[in-house]
Design a protein around this nucleic acid. Structure first.
Length: 865
RNA sequence: GCCCGGAUGGCGGAAUCGGUAGACGCUGCAGACUUAAAAUCUGCUUUCCGUAAGGAAGUGGGGGUUCAAGUCCCCCUCCGGGCACCA
């Protein structure tokens, strides 16, 4: 059985085998299973309206090659695909056209699925998932409830990025240089009620966990930098006013404490009002107003001169009782550390700049260590290490010692303590949008909350955290209650309009009959307030949370759902989870180096903590494919008109050529341009393979023979190829694996005859790369259909070593000849023979050999003059 | 500014335990087959000198280590990515 064509015709061959694989369930993963598992995962796509991009098949093909290879090597392979389908584009399209996002999403998914299937991936389609499917997102909501129960959810008024154009709040990470990442619209600061996840509680574990991961080093470093752990001390300064309030600052350099010549508070610091001298109040207020009006872009622009204003207050330095002025300045961030700093202009560039600007004193307290040799101390500011001066009893200590001693001293005086800060902020988890997972939470008054929390044995009681989660809503303190797991999924209601409310609330806030409900504080049942209040004390009035989750939510845990996509009882069956553990290989773009990969690690660790998963990290081995540029070397974009559509390539050359070419373009991790004529090359190669094994009549080529021994050189070439391709797939060097197969097929083309077994073995090597053609030729040569099921050939390394070796002979490092000799020829004999070579002799003539270099089996070099 | 990664023919790229630089592919040129074209096949294709044999130079630039450097060390230029007043 095979496709019906005499010549190589991808259009008839490819659908034939895709259909064959589907009907036979060739790529179904099975669990439980005795075989070792291999789980290959791609970052699942957002199914956009534009359809598949040429970049998608790059990573997918690489994963596919590895998965097919692992299958041939006897692994039980899980290679799934799904859709990250919540998100802004469908919602914005809905706002424009009124089309329900679910409808757009469904159509886009169908298109994506069709396109991806055309490429012939070894995907287990029975495990397809979709983040917008209530059967999927009920578990996303379930995870949210775990976070809530663990006390990792809180609600806070936060100054957040508000994008007027998108009418939505954006996370810090979604704002780039003062503009929205999506759509590049201007953004501004607004105070809005936000649901926040305490990812900072996991900061240390997220750093430590990186150690054991087989990830690109640069990605680990990026995560580390993003988390930005810094160790230092908090120091308390007493403000010299009647009330004697204290200001706590954070510093990584407690050793420079004697050099603190002023304090700076962020303009938003809560103590500013109380410490500011009445005479300065008007000026300070004006400055704060100006700072507030500044966009963050202005505030963080390093090139801008530093601004600030004196509060009139003074603070007392706890180590030397120095009385130093207290300023406010917007170069100090309210959101980091304590929102206040001690300024040490002699040893900090920013403080130095500020001190110069406002003529504040500068006191050197560190002398550089050894480098005194040249007689001059370096210019200020000096940020390096050294030894302390002008620092009282601590003078003379090294900076490292002083950091510890001064911190200890502060602790004893109750004037400070060692402290750790992170650049990482808590994760603003709410979006004021429609097309996202609704949060399974609602808001009640204190009395109702007390009622619910009194009994921890009910569905609602069991889902509660230790303490209350509260928020001010409409000027009243409200208490959060969970919609318990038993009541999930909480599905999205239908809405009239997809426009955000414009008040900073999602469109969900515009549906009163959904928004206002009667809530059963024991069972967690809800009933619209448009109905009559049911009888019983346990029914209370509640208002639903209207925020939805960000797009990251669904992608934080999808790797788990593939293991058990239809489970109604649990997010994943524990037995299956233990078997599959987590992806053995995860391929996706480096643009997700921080956000998706950090959030997913956070959630995975939380799930580990609640016992839902056995592993501690979600992705043990990670690989980033590089992006494919247009043939002009520029990033592909509609406006540049350099976009290549995979469909067009498949129509012209077939999926096998597309797959092969994407892999042949260059190293998988590199950024590389698309070369339109390069595809001809790999297509030509495939045609050559066809002609090498298939005759004019479409049957086995007369060159193929059965019985007898393969010619030595061809046999050697085959085993070289098996060896190289095997190693290259393991190392994801797919471009060089293809080169090797080209070399082999060139040799086959020149050969008079080829053993059938040689052809079959080669087809096996080619199968992960060009699976359709390989299946087809395999079947035509009489192989049992399903080359995908055949075991991988083993390289016989003994065939690769030969009895003779070739020496390169150099004179003064320049190649002057070659020498073929038996492998075990001794040094003296080789050197003597090398000198006999005519050209070598001519270059040695009239010279004295000063040195003879002999590298066994490799090279001879005569140094002569 | 700081932290990463990179730079090799006309082009994409091979070769890094230091040991023949340019595998493989594209392009180009010449030839074969053909009435012709397509397809296919063969040869050549880093630069310079030379009819050739051969020689010299050569992996972004400069210096160094070594018998030997694309590969190791120092300095610099350019390109890509990340961070960006985080105290």
């Amino acid at each position: 059985m095979h496709a019906n064509c005499e010549q190589y015709d991808p259009a008839s061959i490819e659908p034939f085998w895709q259909d064959f694989w589907e009907r036979n369930g060739t790529f179904r993963a099975s669990d439980p299973d005795e075989r070792p598992r291999f789980y290959g995962l791609d970052m699942f796509p957002y199914p956009s309206g534009a359809g598949l991009h040429i970049g998608h098949p790059e990573g997918y093909t690489a994963t596919d090659i590895v998965c097919r290879f692992k299958k041939a090597r006897g692994f039980n392979v899980l290679h799934p695909m799904g859709w990250d389908a919540f998100g802004l584009p469908a919602e914005q399209y809905a706002i424009k056209t009124g089309t329900h996002p679910a409808q757009t999403t469904k159509a886009n998914i169908e298109n994506f699925r069709k396109q991806i299937k055309q490429i012939g991936f070894a995907i287990d389609w029975t495990r397809e998932i979709n983040t917008t499917d209530p059967d999927y997102y009920r578990w996303t909501q379930w995870i949210f409830l775990q976070l809530y129960r663990l006390g990792l959810v809180y609600v806070d008024e936060k100054p957040v990025w508000w994008c007027p154009e998108l009418r939505s709040v954006l996370a810090n990470e979604e704002v780039i240089q003062g503009r929205s990442e999506v759509g590049n619209h201007p953004v501004e600061r607004r105070n809005l009620r936000q649901v926040v996840l305490k990812i900072t509680d996991y900061a240390d574990r997220l750093i430590e966990g990186l150690n054991d991961l087989d990830w690109p080093e640069s990605t680990k470093r990026q995560q580390q930098a993003w988390i930005g752990r810094s160790e230092g001390a908090e120091v308390k300064f007493t403000i010299d006013t009647k009330a004697k309030p204290e200001v706590t600052v954070f510093t990584t350099r407690p050793d420079t404490l004697f050099g603190a010549t002023y304090l700076v508070l962020a303009p938003e610091h809560p103590l500013v009002d109380s410490i500011t001298d009445p005479s300065r109040m008007a000026d300070v207020e004006a400055y704060r107003e100006k700072a507030r009006a500044k966009s963050d872009l202005d505030r963080t622009d390093l090139a801008k001169e530093k601004t600030g204003i004196f509060t009139g207050a003074h603070a007392i330095n706890p180590v030397n009782q120095a009385r130093i002025p207290v300023w406010i300045a917007d170069y100090v961030l309210a959101s980091y550390g304590t929102g206040a700093i001690m300024a040490v202009p002699a040893h900090d560039e920013r403080d130095y700049e500020f001190a110069k600007e406002f003529q504040l004193p500068i006191q050197r307290v560190i002398e550089p260590g050894q480098s005194k040799g040249n007689g001059h101390t370096p210019e200020l500011p000096f940020g390096g290490d050294g030894s302390l001066v002008h620092s009282g009893d601590f003078s003379g200590l090294s900076t490292a010692e002083a950091r510890k001693k001064i911190t200890d001293h502060l602790s004893q005086q109750d004037a400070g303590k060692a402290s750790v800060n992170y650049r990482l902020r808590d994760w603003i988890f709410s979006r004021q949008r429609y097309w996202g997972e609704p949060m399974p939470m609602l808001w009640v008054n204190q009395e109702a909350w007390e009622k619910a929390s009194a009994n921890r044995e009910t569905p609602v009681g069991r889902a509660l955290p230790q303490g209350p989660v509260t928020s001010r809503i409409d000027d009243e303190v409200r208490y959060a209650l969970p919609i318990p797991p038993e009541q999930l999924p909480l599905t999205l209601p239908e809405v009239e309009t997809f426009q955000p409310a414009g008040t900073g609330e999602s469109p969900l806030a515009t549906i009163p009959e959904w928004l206002n409900v009667w809530f059963n504080t024991e069972t967690g049942e809800t009933l619209s307030q448009s109905e009559e209040r049911p009888a019983g004390d346990e029914w209370v009035a509640a208002r639903r949370e209207t925020n939805t989750m960000p797009q990251w939510a669904g992608s934080c845990w999808y790797h788990l759902r593939y293991m058990d996509p239809d489970n109604k009882e649990a997010l994943v069956d524990p037995e299956k989870e233990k078997y599959w553990q987590s992806p053995d290989l995860y391929i996706g773009g480096s643009e997700h180096a921080v956000l998706h990969l950090l959030y997913a690690r956070f959630w995975h660790k939380v799930l580990h903590d609640v016992g839902a998963v056995s592993s501690d990290e979600p992705y043990r081995k990670l690989f980033h494919q590089g992006i494919i540029l247009g043939d002009d070397g520029e990033k592909m974009s509609k406006s540049r008109g350099n976009v290549i559509n995979p469909d067009v390539v498949i129509d012209a050359y077939g999926a096998d050529s597309l797959r092969l070419f994407e892999m042949f373009l260059g190293p998988l991790e590199d950024m590389k341009p698309w070369n339109p004529s390069g595809i001809e090359g790999v297509h030509r190669f495939l045609k050559k393979v066809w002609r090498a094994f298939i005759g004019q009549d479409g049957k086995t080529s007369p060159k193929i023979i059965t019985g007898g021994e393969e010619a030595k050189d061809l046999q050697k070439a085959l085993h070289q190829t098996i060896h190289k391709v095997t190693e290259d797939i393991e190392g994801l060097r797919l471009n060089t694996a293809i080169s090797q197969m080209m070399i082999f097929i060139n040799q086959v083309t020149k050969a008079e005859a080829v053993q059938r077994s040689t052809a079959m073995a080669f087809l096996q090597l080619l199968a992960p790369f060009a699976p359709h053609m390989s299946e087809e030729i395999w079947a035509r040569l009489g192989g049992e259909p399903g080359i995908a099921n055949a075991p991988w050939p083993e390289a016989d390394l003994s065939l690769l070593t030969s009895d003779s070796v070739k020496y390169v002979v150099q004179v003064n490092g320049k190649v002057r000849g070659e020498l073929n000799t038996a492998k075990d020829t001794g040094k003296d004999e080789v050197l003597a023979a090398a000198k006999e070579i005519e050209k070598v002799a001519s270059f040695l003539e009239g010279k004295t050999i000063r040195k003879e270099i002999f590298v066994p089996g490799k090279i001879v070099n005569f140094v002569a003059n």
